[in-house]
């Protein structure tokens, strides 16, 4: 990694950390504390199971929120406020700019996730639970999912407005969690074209459910290491493809 890429990554992280993320984290902390109190009143069964279920869902939700909002804004703001002139007029290639931005966003997500996971473990510990390796694996898989979301939002933010980026990214996120429906469509559809089209979308769109191992964590069932390894490789390949596409688009952009 060149020093300029490192500089862009650190500055991206600094921008995120000095803006919304802090407030979101505080909000998350309070919400989580409140929901934890509620759980103890409302739950009749396994309080720990419900605590994990609610806590992991909340972490997932807030991290995705941070990933989408930070990702869609960062490149767009650079162009809109013309701060990009100060970067690209220096010996920084457009490829380095995009990779630096992505790394900065990845660092932002890692910090947010680590902070939330820390709060989560403290609550679990207060309720008498311990650190489970499966939960750590859950956070690692969530981190990969967040990286894919960040790469998607970065792609859209490199050529369109934040509102459109938001719509596209959130749509892909939602579709990415119901990818199994494309297989069902394939079975239902009779026209070969639509069958292939549905199959094409299944392979093209991000299958984010591959990173979801919440059921295995909460219910305590076994995790298949090969499926997990495949998911990791899938995430890396998908991120690389998205970054390559973003770079190709960004290389052609002019800044008036």
């Amino acid at each position: 990694m060149t020093m300029s890429m490192k500089g862009i990554a650190c500055n991206t992280f600094r921008e995120s950390a000095r803006n919304k993320m802090f407030y979101l984290l505080v909000f998350f902390g309070i919400l989580f504390a409140l929901s934890s109190k509620l759980i103890s009143f409302l739950t009749l069964g396994d309080a720990m199971k419900v605590l994990k279920d609610t806590g992991l869902a909340a972490i997932n939700f807030f991290c995705v929120l941070i990933a989408v909002f930070t990702g869609i804004n960062l490149v767009y703001k650079e162009i809109e406020k013309k701060t990009i002139f100060n970067i690209l007029s220096k010996p920084v290639s457009r490829d380095q700019f995009i990779v630096g931005k992505f790394l900065g966003l990845a660092l932002t997500m890692l910090t947010a996730l680590a902070a939330m996971a820390g709060i989560f473990f403290v609550f679990v510990w207060i309720r008498g639970g311990g650190v489970d390796l499966k939960i750590i694996l859950y956070f690692l898989m969530l981190f990969l999912e967040l990286l894919v979301i960040v790469a998607i939002s970065l792609l859209f933010s490199s050529f369109t407005t934040p509102i459109l980026s938001f719509i596209f990214t959130v749509s892909l996120y939602l579709i990415g969690h119901v990818m199994w429906t494309f297989n069902e469509f394939k079975a239902i559809l009779r026209v070969p074209f639509w069958k292939y089209f549905s199959q094409g979308l299944y392979y093209l769109l991000p299958n984010l459910d591959k990173f979801n191992i919440k059921n295995e964590v909460v219910l305590g069932t076994a995790i298949n290491p090969w499926t997990t390894l495949f998911s990791v490789l899938y995430a890396l390949a998908y991120i690389l493809a998205l970054l390559a596409l973003t770079i190709l688009i960004f290389r052609k952009r002019e800044f008036q």
Binding site: S4, R14, E15, R18, P91
Partner: peptide, 16 residues
Amino acid sequence: YLTARELLFFSASLFN
């Protein structure tokens, strides 16, 4: 959100 000093160090990093 940067200070003057931070901006100058950031600019220097872009020149490696």
